[in-house]
């Protein structure tokens, strides 16, 4: 069985936990976020007949008072950055979070989920923002915890990318 550690990182309130909770197997409650600061779930994805277990480290969101502990990110095989598409500030902190992740786990596959895609009226990101992501080499998807849009795709891409990546980090 192949297992991959995937860290979900984002600013507080971007909907990380809601995004995945219907799609993953979990035995720990949300209160772990406020205590230990991380909640661990499992998602099994089939990649061309090979089952890959993604062990998801749903790290408590960053806010003004609390930074994301780097120790939770180390050794990650992939990252899922979650941005709240209705709050531009969460988008602007992406580069910062990426630097944090890169510092802890090296250059591993990463994906940006532009979440809350169902709230079209309040959408705060522009075509140019998304184009900028592509330019910077980010893979991104518009996701919605409400409709479930692209959630499975995000996991599928991450699992596939970790298999292709295969490289060992320093």
């Amino acid at each position: 069985m192949i297992q991959k550690k995937v860290c979900m990182v984002g600013v507080y309130g971007t909907g990380k936990t809601s995004l995945v909770q219907q799609y993953v197997h979990s035995i720990f409650s949300v209160k772990y976020h406020s205590t230990v600061g991380v909640k661990i779930d499992r998602k099994v994805v089939d990649i061309g007949g090979t089952p890959v277990t993604l062990v998801l480290w749903d790290v408590a969101g960053r806010d003004a008072t609390q930074d994301i502990p780097a120790s939770y990110l180390k050794g990650a095989h992939a990252f899922l950055f979650v941005v709240d598409g209705t709050r531009r500030t969460t988008f602007e902190q992406l580069a910062d979070l990426r630097a944090l992740a890169r510092g802890a786990a090296g250059d591993v596959p990463a994906m940006v989920a532009l979440n809350k895609a169902d709230l079209k009226a309040e959408w705060a990101l522009t075509e140019r923002d998304e184009a900028a992501l592509v330019t910077e080499g980010w893979h991104h998807l518009r996701t919605s915890a409400k409709t479930g849009a692209c959630v499975e795709e995000a996991f599928g891409w991450l699992a596939g990318a970790t298999l292709r990546d295969g490289s060992k980090r320093p």
């Binding site: 197997h25 035995i27 772990y32 230990v36 600061g37 661990i40 062990v55 502990p69 939770y72």
Partner: peptide, 16 residues
């Protein structure tokens, strides 16, 4: 069941 999740959480608690 879920020894993999417990394993992850044990590590997280250690880090914590």
């Amino acid at each position: 069941a879920d020894a993999d999740l417990v394993s992850g959480m044990l590590t997280a608690i250690q880090d914590f």
